[in-house]
Simulated assay, not measured.
Amino acid sequence: MTVAARLPDAASLETVLAGLGPASADADLIPALTIAFPGFAFGIAPIDDDYWRDTRSVLRPDGTRLGELRPWMIAELAKENGDVTAVWERLKEIDLQITEWRGTSVFVSAPTGPGVADYVQIALGREIEWRAGPIVNPNYRPYGKEELLDPSWPRTDQLPDSDRLAGPLYRLLDRAGGAVIHVRSFLDRCGRVEREKREANRPELEQRVIREVGPQGTRETSFLEAVPDFFDFVPRELRFFRDWEESSAGPQHIFAHWALDARDYTHKSEREVGFIPRPLKPPKERLLTTGDISVHALMDRIEAVDREVGLPFGWFFLMTHGHWVDPDVGHAIAEGLKAQRVRLPDPDARVLLRWADRTYGF
């Protein structure tokens, strides 16, 4: 059913998130979004990807905050004329501590229509402030001031709940323009930007010549003759969704299985729009083509992957990512299909053979 409601926007989302109390933020997030944006069936998917914000505070043992770490430490260095060792020697003898915000990504999605790309995705960070440790590492003398200004040594430690200071708080993640996306519109943008880039190079490409030197001399071929479909290129992001829609995975929502780490930014006057898909439930083990494993054994293993992740043809989309299923698995099964040694459902076979003819990955 098509949702006749305004799409979530960054400013309204920030207002909703600011109104969540830390004690009940987890329970209140979806209800608060539903109230702010009626008509949407929001769902939440956490990602296990710990990150750290660069915001830290200096804390006394009684909990009094002396300020943000970086400007406070710069002032301490100035007292010692920039002598890093002198600052370290002094600070390691006192009880000051530093705090640190640690977070994990959370993706909130809601369908906006019947199509595979008809949904909105919101990338959030779920963050908690912790008492991370003493102001300096007493057992390790820093070699430069950056080790004082941007300490990384506490980050590997698992912190007890007694060191929890604030949170959880939710905030929009600054994902290079991809914090809030309507996926169908985002895909349209991906295709349009790619076409515009290629069209902008048309005059130069029409003049480009490929020269090949062989026994019969030099042969010249125009670039567009050698690559006749250059202007028909389909970005991998669009192919991912098209393959999903045309395969056995099609009846299920993409956002039930994948989050999109989206980006839309300009670097050196070049527009970059796209995403990296991230599985919400990756398999426990990677599937590789090792030794002389047969295509029939690979078929058994891809079926096991599909059962584990709860998605028909799920192995294929894990393969396009390139980490959990090796692309060689796809090539081996494609060759098995061509030789009629194995079978896949017809829609899946068409998608796989199309991929094998012109691969893509993230």
Score class of each variant (00 low, 15 high):
345 P>N: 13
318 L>S: 03
349 A>V: 03
347 P>R: 13
318 L>Q: 10
354 R>W: 03
327 P>K: 04
290 T>S: 14
350 R>F: 08
324 W>E: 14
300 D>N: 15
292 D>L: 05
280 L>P: 04
314 G>F: 08
326 D>R: 05
308 E>Y: 08
297 A>E: 15
353 L>C: 04
345 P>I: 14
314 G>K: 10
357 D>L: 00
353 L>R: 09
289 T>V: 15
289 T>Q: 13
313 F>Y: 12
323 H>G: 00
350 R>L: 12
334 A>G: 15
297 A>C: 03
315 W>E: 11
298 L>E: 05
289 T>M: 13
298 L>Y: 08
329 V>R: 04
289 T>H: 13
320 T>I: 03
296 H>M: 11
286 R>F: 09
347 P>K: 12
278 R>Y: 09
294 S>G: 14
355 W>E: 09
319 M>G: 07
293 I>D: 10
288 L>S: 13
327 P>W: 04
361 G>Y: 07
303 E>R: 15
311 L>K: 07
308 E>S: 09
318 L>D: 07
360 Y>L: 01
277 P>G: 02
353 L>M: 13
311 L>Y: 07
287 L>A: 05
342 V>P: 06
326 D>G: 02
343 R>P: 00
318 L>F: 11
292 D>Y: 00
289 T>R: 15
279 P>D: 08
340 Q>K: 14
361 G>W: 11
309 V>T: 12
323 H>A: 10
290 T>M: 14
345 P>L: 13
349 A>L: 11
304 A>E: 13
316 F>S: 06
356 A>M: 02
331 H>P: 00
292 D>M: 03
294 S>L: 02
305 V>S: 01
283 P>L: 08
343 R>M: 12
341 R>G: 14
304 A>P: 01
280 L>A: 11
284 K>I: 07
351 V>C: 07
295 V>S: 09
294 S>R: 06
325 V>S: 04
336 G>Y: 02
333 I>Y: 05
313 F>W: 06
335 E>G: 02
337 L>R: 03
357 D>C: 03
325 V>C: 02
299 M>H: 03
352 L>A: 07
340 Q>I: 00
324 W>L: 09
295 V>N: 07
292 D>E: 13
343 R>N: 11
352 L>H: 10
286 R>A: 12
300 D>Q: 14
308 E>R: 03
294 S>D: 10
345 P>K: 12
300 D>H: 13
324 W>C: 01
